[in-house]
Design a protein around this nucleic acid. Sequence first.
DNA 1: GGATAGTTTGATACTATATAACATAAAGAG
DNA 2: CTCTTTATGTTATATAGTATCAAACTATCC
Lengths: 164, 164
Amino acid sequence: MASSDQAVVTEFFAEGHDHSACREAALAAAEAICRTRGMRFTRLRRRVLELIWDRDYPVKAYELLEQLRGERSGAAPPTVYRTLDFLLREGFIHRVESLNAYIGCGDPGHAHPVQLLVCRHCYKVAELADDDVARLLQQKAYARGFAVDAAVVELEGVCPRCGG
Amino acid sequence: MASSDQAVVTEFFAEGHDHSACREAALAAAEAICRTRGMRFTRLRRRVLELIWDRDYPVKAYELLEQLRGERSGAAPPTVYRTLDFLLREGFIHRVESLNAYIGCGDPGHAHPVQLLVCRHCYKVAELADDDVARLLQQKAYARGFAVDAAVVELEGVCPRCGG
DNA sequence: GGATAGTTTGATACTATATAACATAAAGAG
DNA sequence: CTCTTTATGTTATATAGTATCAAACTATCC
């Protein structure tokens, strides 16, 4: 575990996890990052990121849409998907492929490999963000002449709280 | 690479890859496996597996449906999805999560970890099937108290033929 | 060989997920 | 202020997957 970036591991599964503190930190970070990158952290974008962090479970696009509809007159699928695309591009959220859902990134602004632990019981998701894993995958692929640009790594199983 | 199961690596990206030979072998294997497991390798199931192997690219469910419609009167989405579920359960195909598509498994009948190399240029997919990777993922998750049941590992990048 | 229990497929309807295309509005640069 | 770019609104459509019940098939047992 020597070289793993432990700072990134969000202790999502822990009893004491203060999700609302994470939320505030993530929103502040997103705002700051947008400022330094010259991107616009608009009300819509902020609001969608808030809604994602409001739950500590993966959120689906159409759940977000439904919530937005209570707040904005003309919210439609593109409203949500475009905003999700932005948040993904900027690294503020991650997409959980195996659930078609989205979670807030616990460490926006620091590039890190993304590996997700998905509890099949409570459906919470934690980030592993392990450099050793990323490196091994890269090496193994390279040995086949394959140059890796991006990786989807999602481990389904049982989290410690659910008796993993 | 010591402990990796090299037999499983399909050389999908190689020039000389004889896809139709793979196809025939896979179909014969599926038939034999069904016999030993007491499962029914019905005409529909065989046909869908054939259609998947007919292309050497990942195939989408609705492409299969369209082709089936030319052959069977009443083919409908459930026809395809139920058959895909069967083929997945028996390990004859793999689902590519990042493409919502399906590929034939190059080594049905032998349990193996599934890691996919997805070329973003030609869209071909190869199996890595590396035990070291599976083991490392398991270890890293276990260190967080997480018990892994299944893994989605898909590496997107450029294959050797496309200049990776 | 016929009853029957289990499995597979047919058929209809529906839900869920995501994108295309074009119009309008808002923000930043000169 | 006006021009350009970026963001959002709006309508329509494409793609992906599931629920439900009925009919047909298969294997088995008597």
